[in-house]
Design a protein around this nucleic acid. Structure first.
Lengths: 215, 215
DNA sequence: TCCTCATCTTACTCCTGCGTAAGTTGGGTG
DNA sequence: CACCCAACTTACGCAGGAGTAAGATGAGGA
């Protein structure tokens, strides 16, 4: 499958912090490839070129190891999203940048996005909360922008943001799984256009349509 | 939690088909509440008011039991979606109906949608395929409509459909988890409007925007 | 050189939960 | 009424995998 990170010369001793980083990398590979449940602590240790108790000298248990990774990558996503929205004042550009951030996140770092978006441990409250919270924070960032420039209510703005984030997440994941058919920037542009058409000038058409459908 | 379906009078014998239906119902409750991994065959049996071997007289194993449910509800979703799109010739109405179908699916049948959308067994190829295939079939139905009325390429139409389905799925799930703040039809309408604004008249604005962004 | 302690290993224990062997019960039919 | 077979039960085997006890090893300082 993926290259066994760097289990160089089983028998090499490493200073504590260095070993910890390496263990996290090995764990990420295994969790991404197999999911939480099918990932064995033995395999993680083996991939790091180390025996199992070493793992337990760095992390109290399998769950904590997983949570450390989840936390880290969740933070990365939110940060990418924040940067994207702060990168410009033009809303059309903001939409593009926002989608690009999502696609970059999905395309990057050894498919780590699967930990955040496709965790098979979401039934555990701690994990569910972290995932949803990450999702919500992204939506909130977008919601703030929407609210600034429309007269829409807070609740409606929030739901729209949720919908947009869902669109980004879903299309980015789909795009990655079907790599090759469309280049990344083309996919981004296409979906961003869909989103922009959806929200831009929202206030202008709303009353007209409500009159029509309410009639 | 949820009422224990009907484990009436432990000791009641049931004809084969009737028992099978009841076992499926009990299994659904447990799988929905706990997810695949945390669901115990013992609990499913207990909830059905029956001992474990009875379960194994109806299903070869835990996996097959799960797959039977997944299959069933996947089919329901696709069918709902098909009906929605066939219910009218007006595309604006189609969008509304399509989103309504998604929200109905999520709101209905003991949260069975969690089996399709939130399975913690997606790392198993059989399950991943079924989930993705369901998703794709929904997208394909929508893609067909889009292609009929635009000059867009097949690939682009497909990606747009994926994005729209993702939007529907995500917003419906979010809406359900935060029940109470917004009534179902209001949520549907809002998201449907977003989608409709996004795709309607796509051909008309594309060349203009391409010229602008390419300049 | 020899001591020390952090790093690492082998070789277990134990628990959970799927699946099954063997035997029991009760309603319908000749 | 006696038989039969489908529906059911209790009680267990067994595997996989998390976590651990106890001991080995090697680099850096006195």
């Amino acid at each position: 499958m993926t290259a066994p990170s760097d289990a160089r010369a089983r028998g090499t001793r490493l200073p504590r912090v260095r070993r910890r980083r390496q263990l996290l990398a090995a764990a990420q590979e295994v969790f991404v490839a197999r999911g939480y449940h099918a990932a064995a602590m033995d395999e993680i240790a083996e991939r790091a070129g180390v025996s199992k108790p070493v793992l337990y000298q760095h992390f109290p248990g399998k769950l904590e190891l997983y949570l450390a990774l989840l936390e880290e990558h969740s933070e990365v996503l939110v940060e990418k999203q924040r940067e994207a929205l702060e990168s410009t004042d033009d809303n059309r550009q903001r939409v593009t940048a926002s989608f690009q951030a999502y696609f970059d996140f999905v395309a990057g770092d050894g498919e780590a996005f699967r930990l955040v978006f496709e965790s098979d441990l979401r039934n555990l409250p701690a994990v569910r909360e972290k995932s949803e919270q990450t999702f919500q924070r992204c939506a909130e960032l977008i919601g703030d922008v929407i609210r600034q420039d429309t007269s829409i209510s807070d609740e409606e703005a929030h739901l729209l943001s949720i919908a947009l984030v869902g669109m980004a997440e879903t299309s980015a994941r789909y795009w990655l799984n079907n790599h090759g058919s469309v280049p990344q920037d083309a996919a981004e542009q296409l979906v961003a256009r869909l989103a922009w058409r959806g929200i831009s000038g929202w206030d202008l058409t709303r009353s007209a349509e409500e009159a029509a459908s309410g009639d």
